[in-house]
Design a protein around this nucleic acid. Structure first.
Length: 669
DNA sequence: GCCGTTTCAAAGCC
DNA sequence: CGGCTTTGAAACGG
């Protein structure tokens, strides 16, 4: 592109073009900025030549570009179902009952579950129909989703969660298959399919499997603005996952946009960007972001070697600025708690307010885009991440008041559990004895320690084929990093009767907390729990502890109105974790080892642990997995809590206590 | 529709 | 553990 080297104003309007009607391009028409133009700034190049399609439209129709574009780009907001007054009354009643039930346990909010009718009415559906060998290209239809009802939000949240579980489960399966093939010595054996695939990344293979079955979300429509089911602050570990969900459709490129050919205006429109820190000219201050356009770099050296051009994503960002289209911003943050060393946070919507051609640090021309975060959104995931990191080391610097305890476990947990309340003067959690481990009735565990043949004889870490693996249906429940591969009726960990060392990977949940948790007070949910650490989906969080009561004891206690947690009441959410039936319809959830009908309960009225403060949700982010390791009485398993999603720092943990179905039955009778 | 180009990936290796 | 290399997938656009 030919550069205009004469000194001129730094605002785009200075480079006027007859073919663009400034009346309809407010951003191009604004007054020069008050701040003085930096001497580093280059004069702006002439604006992009209008694409033929737009020129034709402008010539043939007096109707200018902007309204037409808003019709095209803003398009059909989704309509939620009108609220059903009867249903609302029902949900109000749930809420009242839930409050009564939970007042003694100190937990939270009931959110109504979606009805099948709502699910059917949802507008953005995953692709359906026959498995297409060829993946469909992304379509050009632009949609902005607005004002979803609570039920729709939950519906989409579950839809997204299901896709993410499928993706992560497939990835885990493929990795494990690769390891098995390697362990069997198949590496290097010519013609063995698994070996050929071994070199292919599991995230890409998982995405391809889902693509073959039309399981990518939001392929039919290109969504401007928020993606239903994805919240500001959500965390992701793979770029490919962002593609699968439709949050960002480019595998590697940082700017995603609707291409010129697909846009109704004939111009590219940017929809999302990823700020990965790889461009030296970025200036990221959170709410204010100066983002560098792409291109102009040597593909190997990642250094600028030529001036960037106003094309592709660069042009699309400029067009989005002109039309006021909001941009989803995803930031990459380095962390050790990620399989790839970094995590992507969805940080919400921004608007491009300025762009200019600048001289980058390399000396070559780079396009820069000043973006401002739209106000009124949830806190940025990347900001919460940094804040939580600070709170771990300098608690009082950032929150000088509100701490009731820096460790309510008094050292009984492997990590401190903070108690924090800056809302009111409630100090209830201090009144209970902290019990890191449940106390089982002696009748339940007596003589059950060696039951089932005792432990394994492995002297090193356990491996496939060992006794404890056989107990778990010949596969270990956890991957190398300690994440649960898929939920089961019951997981057997190695225990005191095993010869393997404490470092054995089959001892995940007995090691205690691995995250820094905080019990906190909120106006919405009463007491709740959140983590300072990023929690990866499938990893262990904590145990549900208290005084374990036998069936008979439970009957007596419940008559007295005491606060009991009944394990059998938790819906079997573990069924979801590891479910790949969308890709493999023949998939059946593990039904082995069989688990008994659980009749015991846990009394948390006197002694309890952090788990007691989890809020209830019917769209939860954690679930209960039953585990045995110290005794082998299948009627009294441990209630271990695992993450069902990636849980970003400072987000409230929520669990499905399973009351809704019961009340639904009562209320509809 | 094919193919070349581009791309702020991810994993493996040293 | 960090930087380098290898091997990629998908979308755009000619």
């Amino acid at each position: 592109m030919e550069m205009d080297t004469s000194p001129s104003s730094s605002v785009p309007s200075s480079a006027s073009s007859d073919s663009i009607d400034l009346n309809f391009l407010p951003f191009l028409k604004r007054e020069p900025k008050s701040e003085p133009a930096s001497p580093e700034r280059w004069p702006l190049p002439p604006p992009p030549p209008p694409p033929p399609a737009q020129a034709a439209t402008a010539a043939s129709t007096p109707m200018p570009a902007t309204p037409e574009l808003s019709a095209a780009a803003v398009m059909t907001p989704l309509q939620s179902l009108p609220p059903n007054p009867d249903e609302d009354a029902l949900f109000a009643e749930y809420y009242r009952l839930a409050s009564l039930y939970l007042s003694s346990a100190g937990t939270g909010v009931i959110v109504p579950s979606p009805t099948p009718e709502v699910a059917a009415s949802a507008v953005v559906q995953p692709g359906s129909g026959n498995a297409a060998k060829k993946r469909r290209p992304r379509s050009s239809e632009l949609v902005r989703v607005s004002s979803l009802s609570v039920r729709d939000q939950i519906y989409f949240r579950d839809l997204v969660r299901r896709a993410r579980i499928t993706f992560e489960s497939l990835r885990g399966m493929l990795l494990r298959d690769d390891e098995r093939a390697e362990a069997l010595g198949l590496a290097g054996v010519a013609g063995f399919a698994a070996v050929d695939r071994r070199r292919v990344r599991a995230d890409l293979r998982a995405a391809a499997l889902m693509g073959d079955r039309d399981l990518w979300l939001n392929r039919d429509r290109r969504i401007v603005g928020p993606i239903p089911g994805i919240s500001v602050g959500d965390a992701f570990f793979f770029r490919m996952e962002l593609c699968v969900l439709g949050l960002h459709g480019q595998v590697q490129a940082g700017i995603d946009f609707v291409s010129a050919g697909q846009s109704s205006s004939g111009e590219p429109i940017a929809t999302s960007i990823i700020v990965s820190g790889g461009y030296e000219d970025d200036d990221d201050r959170g709410d204010i972001l100066v983002y560098t356009g792409h291109g102009g770099r040597d593909p190997n050296l990642h250094k600028h070697c030529v001036d960037q051009k106003l094309e592709g994503g660069n042009l699309a960002l400029e067009r989005s600025m002109a039309y006021g289209i909001e941009i989803r911003v995803i930031r990459a943050v380095k962390t050790r708690r990620s399989p790839i060393g970094k995590v992507y946070f969805y940080d919400g919507l921004y608007k491009v307010v300025d762009f200019w051609l600048d001289r980058g640090k390399s000396g070559f021309g780079v396009y820069k885009y000043k973006m401002l975060r739209i106000e009124g959104q949830e806190a940025m995931g990347s900001l919460n991440f940094r804040l939580a990191e600070q709170l771990k080391v300098n608690a009082l610097t950032f929150r000088p008041t509100g701490y009731l305890s820096f460790d309510i476990s008094m050292g009984r947990e492997t990590m401190p559990v903070v108690l924090y309340n800056d809302v009111d003067d409630d100090r209830d959690p201090l009144l209970f004895e902290y019990l890191a481990r449940p106390i089982f009735p002696s009748s339940a565990v007596q003589g059950k320690f060696g039951e089932g043949g005792g432990g394994c004889e492995c002297t090193d870490n356990c491996s496939i084929g060992c006794y404890c693996a056989a107990r778990n249906g010949s596969e270990f429940a956890y991957d190398k990093a300690g994440a649960l591969l898929r939920g089961k009726p019951l997981v057997y960990e190695c225990g005191p009767y095993c010869r393997c060392p404490p470092s054995c990977p089959n001892r995940v949940s007995q090691k205690g907390l691995m995250n820094r948790l905080e019990v906190f007070r909120s106006r919405e949910t009463g007491w709740g729990v959140r983590s300072f650490d990023l929690i990866k989906a499938g990893t262990f969080i904590c145990e549900f502890s208290g005084i374990v009561l036998t069936h008979q004891q439970s009957e007596i206690m419940s008559v007295n109105g005491d606060c009991l947690v009944r394990p059998s009441r938790f819906p079997p959410r573990w069924l979801d974790w590891g479910d790949v039936s969308d890709v493999y319809p023949e998939y059946v959830a593990p039904n082995n080892p069989a688990v008994a009908d659980l009749k015991f309960s846990i009394d948390v009225s006197r002694a309890r642990n952090v788990a007691c403060y989890f809020s209830h949700s019917c769209s939860p982010n954690v679930f209960v997995q039953f585990v045995l390791f110290d005794h082998y009485n299948v009627s009294y398993p441990h209630l271990m809590i695992f993450a069902m999603e990636n849980i970003p720092p400072l987000r409230e943990l929520s669990i499905d206590y399973g009351m809704i179905d019961e009340w639904m039955g009562k209320l509809t009778m």
